[in-house]
Amino acid sequence: METDLTSVIIGLASLAIFLLPISYYQFQEKKGLKEAKKQFLNKAGDLAFQTGDFEVLRNRASIGIGKNHEELLYVKRNQYQLIELTDVVNCSDYKNHRKDLGSHDSVIQQVGIRIKLRHGLDARLPFFEGKEGTLIGDEQIIVRRWIDRINTAHKELEASVNA
Rank of each mutant, 00 (worst) to 15 (best):
S7W: 10
I9A: 10
L15K: 02
L5K: 09
L12M: 12
L15E: 00
L15R: 02
K34T: 13
K37C: 12
V8W: 07
I22L: 02
D4A: 04
A13M: 11
L15G: 03
F27P: 05
I17Y: 01
K38M: 13
K31Y: 14
G11N: 09
K38R: 14
L20R: 00
F18Q: 04
L20M: 01
F18P: 00
Q26R: 06
Y24W: 08
T3D: 09
K34V: 09
F27V: 12
I9Y: 06
L12P: 01
K30L: 11
D4S: 09
D4P: 02
F27Y: 14
A36L: 15
S14A: 11
A13D: 01
P21A: 07
Q26S: 08
T6N: 04
I9F: 07
L20W: 00
F27D: 07
S23F: 03
Q26W: 04
G11L: 12
K31S: 15
F18R: 03
A36N: 13
F27W: 12
S7E: 10
Y24H: 07
Q26G: 02
A16K: 03
I22S: 00
E35Q: 15
A13I: 07
K30C: 10
P21I: 04
K38Y: 14
Q28D: 06
E35K: 15
A36D: 14
K30S: 11
E35C: 14
L12A: 08
I9E: 04
E29G: 05
I22F: 00
Y24A: 11
I10T: 06
I22N: 00
I9Q: 05
S7V: 10
S7K: 11
I17S: 02
S7C: 07
T6E: 02
K30N: 13
L5S: 08
K34S: 15
L12N: 08
S14P: 01
A16G: 03
A13R: 06
L12F: 08
I10H: 02
